[in-house]
């Protein structure tokens, strides 16, 4: 597999490490049901069969966390961007 790193360009997947589903929002620690929300945040995943957005770290590269759009049925990758909006902005 080759991952298109927005900073380095396409690189072998071996340079990256995979975390999982992107876009999960860390709950408000002060919410009344915070513990339940944290349980969900830590453990429950969409595990979608199809196009997903997921977090990869370019560990043996620029060390950017990136959000990769990838199809879990075919492994086709249709996009990637920096996870941090600040980095994204700076890169532009």
């Amino acid at each position: 597999m080759r991952i298109p790193c927005p900073f380095c360009g396409p690189r072998d997947s071996q340079e990256f490490s995979f975390l999982g589903q992107a876009g999960l929002k860390r709950p408000d620690p002060n919410a009344p049901d915070a513990q339940m929300q944290f349980h969900d945040y830590v453990h429950i995943r969409d595990n979608k069969a199809g196009v997903t957005q997921e977090l990869w770290l370019h560990a043996n590269g620029c060390r950017s966390w990136i959000v990769v759009t990838r199809n879990t049925l075919t492994h086709e990758i249709t996009g990637s961007e920096f996870a941090s909006p600040q980095v994204k902005e700076a890169a532009q």
Binding site: S17, L19, R26, L55, L57, A59, R63, S64, W65, F82, A83, S84, P85, Q86, V87
Partner: peptide
């Protein structure tokens, strides 16, 4: 190191 980078770049980029 990877964890801290996650915390910064993903959780609290501000």
């Amino acid at each position: 190191m990877a964890h801290l980078e996650f915390c910064h770049q993903v959780l609290w980029p501000e």
